[in-house]
Design a protein around this nucleic acid. Structure first.
Length: 303
DNA sequence: GATCCGTGGTC
DNA sequence: TGACCAAGGAT
């Protein structure tokens, strides 16, 4: 039985498992999207210290929300989180349908909030559960997974049921080296003979990009410019420069499907719209990791 | 339905 | 180093 396995071996220590507060469940689910659990934990704690309630979040500024998110990536998550806080006026809606209407909340997150916070009988399907179910039924067709999940759902105990399948996927039914011998479902699992055949392909191809960024320092402050395009919207970046021969430092950074080689140059006259941010306050400002890495490399490499 | 959106860790 | 990964959502 999965439930018994979960009660003995599940990840009960995770901070967001200690609560049924919809806001906290919601925050954790958004942070966990495409992001490793261990990485989320400190961000989750810090975020709640500053914004303990959805109401407090709605009263905060997007700039500060993005600053708290800095380093987590996928920053539209933070902007949507903040928008949702403002839209919903201090309290999340109770119904799945209304949750689905909110920015940044899709089928997975709406189901997760409904089941984890409200105890509603909603099946949850994330990549972990999808992999578990695909192997269990030995199907490579991902389209019917939601229906299968609904059929399998324990309607008496949806919260634990969903968490159990999720933990099973993360701890036992792992993408690469599944621990079938420890799996509580092994006797009825149709995919146990060849579990890897039913894993998702997931492959992402990378292309190389080169970036030329300028660094201006004056009296301990650095010049940053607001992001223009869709990427890093609402955040501050190093200004782009034409690029010359004398890069002071070079760093590598991966983002989305790009492997970026970043060349850093001293910049004597930054753009007029630049903001001067004291280096000592770089941690309080909405900048992506790329900027922190670049500044660090520049200061260390450029004497 | 395919593509875009970040990042630090790991092998 | 380079490839690949990890609790999705929006377009």
């Amino acid at each position: 039985m999965v439930l018994q396995w979960y009660r003995e071996k599940g990840r009960h220590h995770l901070p967001w498992r200690q609560t049924t507060d919809p806001y906290r469940i919601y925050l954790s689910e958004v942070m966990l999207q495409q992001t490793p659990v261990e990485r989320v934990i400190p961000y989750y704690q810090r975020f709640l210290d500053r914004f303990p309630t959805l109401e407090a979040l709605g009263e905060g500024e997007e700039e500060e929300v993005l600053a708290l998110w800095s380093g987590l990536g996928y920053y539209s998550r933070a902007r949507n989180l903040h928008r949702t806080a403002r839209i919903s006026g201090g309290e999340l809606p109770r119904s799945y349908r209304e949750l689905l209407q909110l920015p940044g909340i899709g089928r997975y997150t709406a189901s997760a909030i409904s089941s984890f916070a409200y105890g509603e009988a909603r099946a949850v399907v994330d990549t972990n559960i999808k992999r578990v179910l695909k192997r269990y039924w030995a199907t490579s067709d991902g389209r019917e997974i939601w229906e299968l999940a609904e059929r399998l759902l324990d309607r008496e105990n949806p919260r634990e049921h969903n968490l159990a399948l999720m933990d099973l996927g993360a701890l036992i039914c792992r993408p690469k080296d599944p621990l079938c011998s420890l799996c509580p479902l092994r006797s009825r699992c149709l995919g146990r003979g060849d579990p890897l055949a039913y894993s998702s392909p997931s492959g992402r191809s990378y292309s190389k990009v080169e970036l030329h960024l300028g660094i201006s320092l004056r009296e301990g402050s650095i010049a940053l410019v607001p992001s223009q395009g869709r990427l890093y919207r609402g955040m501050l970046l190093l200004p782009s420069v034409p690029g010359g021969e004398r890069a002071v430092a070079t760093i590598y950074h991966t983002y989305s499907r790009y492997r970026v080689r970043v060349l850093l140059y001293p910049l004597s006259s930054p753009p007029a719209d630049a903001l001067w941010v004291p280096l000592s306050r770089l941690g309080e400002v909405p900048v992506p990791s790329l900027v922190r890495k670049a500044v660090k490399a520049y200061l260390e490499g450029g004497d």
